[in-house]
Design a protein around this nucleic acid. Structure first.
Lengths: 123, 123
DNA sequence: CATACGCTTAACCTTCTGGTTAAGTGAAGG
DNA sequence: CCTTCACTTAACCAGAAGGTTAAGCGTATG
């Protein structure tokens, strides 16, 4: 299981250490040693976390001498965000008219659409 | 690890079967039997997936006679979306001018070029 | 009331995960 | 050179995950 891209991304994000690494890389590229420093685990453990992130395409890595820098790649995060966004209508009360319309269409539920009586169509 | 709420949510979303269940519940509440039908796994397996989703607070369940209906609870999805949204500037091309400025400042310039000399200059 | 139904729990198995320490690789440098 | 540094890989372990079948439990129902 968990073979598809989305699963790999969510699975990568499920670990707090990896989220911390992502947060760090959001500020600057970093070497394995730099990433290990603030964490309370060994460097091999960090190395494997990086491999997981790399497999999920959440980071890319460049070699320069004996250092390897990790760089955040956000494209998979967008896919994850897009997936979650499908359910945005379930929590967001400030829906735009377009969102409401699409939500109504997707839900295929006529009664639940509170804006169905609004004559204004989306522009 | 993986004890916090966010980890539980991402971990729950990491499984394709559970995402399928969420997609189903987004359309209508459903019993365990109804949820099991389109899936190629046994009912006990689905029952455990539901328990995982319940622990992540992604669903609530109500009992009615011998049937138990599952209901989607989207609040945790919002938390997950909020976390990912922190990195939106890394993929969203429609940045505001302020966001672009902050992104440029935080990225802190061409790190990979200087890395060849000394990794400490990465930041 | 006996039985079938809906679902959960138990027991078991295999695979995955995340950590460790120790050894291996390749570039820097005294 | 030959060591040190940065990092990866290997070997190992404990526990979690996800599947199965079988059994249990409570509610409908013929």
């Amino acid at each position: 299981m968990a073979g598809d891209q989305l699963s790999a991304v969510f699975s990568a994000l499920a670990d707090p250490t990896r989220r911390a690494i992502i947060a760090e890389l959001a500020e600057r590229d970093a070497t394995v040693t730099e990433l290990t420093a603030p964490l309370s685990i060994s460097m091999p453990a960090v190395s494997r976390h990086l491999k997981v992130l790399e497999r999920a395409a959440l980071i890319s890595r460049s070699r320069s001498g004996k250092w390897r820098a990790s760089h955040l790649e956000a494209a998979p995060l967008r896919e994850a965000a897009d997936w979650i966004a499908r359910y945005r209508r379930f929590w967001d009360s400030s829906l735009t008219r377009l969102d409401a319309h699409l939500a109504a269409v997707q839900a295929a539920g006529p009664a639940t659409d509170r804006m169905a009586d609004d004559p204004r169509e989306l522009g």
